[in-house]
Amino acid sequence: MNKEPIKFRKERLDRGIKARCEDIFALSSYREILYLLLPRVLPVALLLVFPLFKDIVGLYWEKVLVITCAIALLSLSWDWLASVGLISLGQALFFGVGAYVTGSLNYAFKWPPLITIPLGTLGGALICTLLLLPVLRLRGVYFAIVTLTLPLLLMRFIETTKILGGTEGLSALTPLPSLWVELYVPVFTLLICLFGFRRLINEDYGLVLQGIRDNDRAVMSGAINIYWFKTQAVFLAALVGSFPGAFMTHYYQFVGMPAFALDYSILPLTAAVLGGVGTFAGPTLGAFILVPLSEVLRAFGTLRVVFYSAILIICVVGLPEGVFHYIRRKYHQFERMVEVG
């Protein structure tokens, strides 16, 4: 029984590229570069090109893109807090405060969006950080409860005191200058925040934040003031969370109590869990699955929520690690045939 000698064996594509650890690569060919770049470049390119095809896909879906980017930014902000060990249930706080600061600046002084949006983002982030400062010592579920309550508290506060337009809200705000601004500002902001966060978390600064998540006492004994770092982290998260609020205010030309709606807390959280926590790309992907999905399901009328929830449950039970982690794992398991000998 003469067996044919084995000429080929399977080898994982990433084996030859990875050097020692997950984030150092040794590239030796054009194809290997392509293997690494494709999953990074392709989504970015798609995102950049999508608004150009507005005549083909229709204005409706372009507007879905704007809302998706807003939710994606909120889930990025959630994931950033989570990587410092702060579990938040209140992204609506950032969204709402950013929205109200922008709205009232525009309403009171008639400043253009070019000024009110940056000011609203910055001011919103400052106010949110100050509001959260006393509870930074809390961790886990305690921090979560406070963040869940704060937007609801502010909403009722505006309702009962009738400040900032009360239940009516502030309407007839300045619209954004053009459709291109409406479409490209959220896309670019999302890309900057996504890659900025991915970069920052692996810098020394980000490592300190990750250290606080893993073991805050060990960071303290490393001569580092963890409350100062946590404050900075919350400020960054609040910046990224306030921007969509500020932007959507001018986009809708209206700001009202719905800016503090529970949706803005729950959707980013679900997007992060669905997409995969801890990578920033995961929550973004999650938002790009969830928001369009919920639009597609509009055709089912009232049954929409049932389908939506069912899909969500199936995803979370089936892929508890998150869609992004699953795809990444599978992508790294691609094999090629190599000659033996």
Partner: peptide, 23 residues
């Protein structure tokens, strides 16, 4: 610490970057 307190999700040398970042 008697009960070890490493930064579990970081590699060993990155564990040391954190105190190295201190003022």
């Amino acid at each position: 610490f008697q009960m070890v307190k490493p930064f579990y999700q970081l590699s060993a040398f990155k564990n040391l970057i954190i105190p190295l970042y201190s003022s």
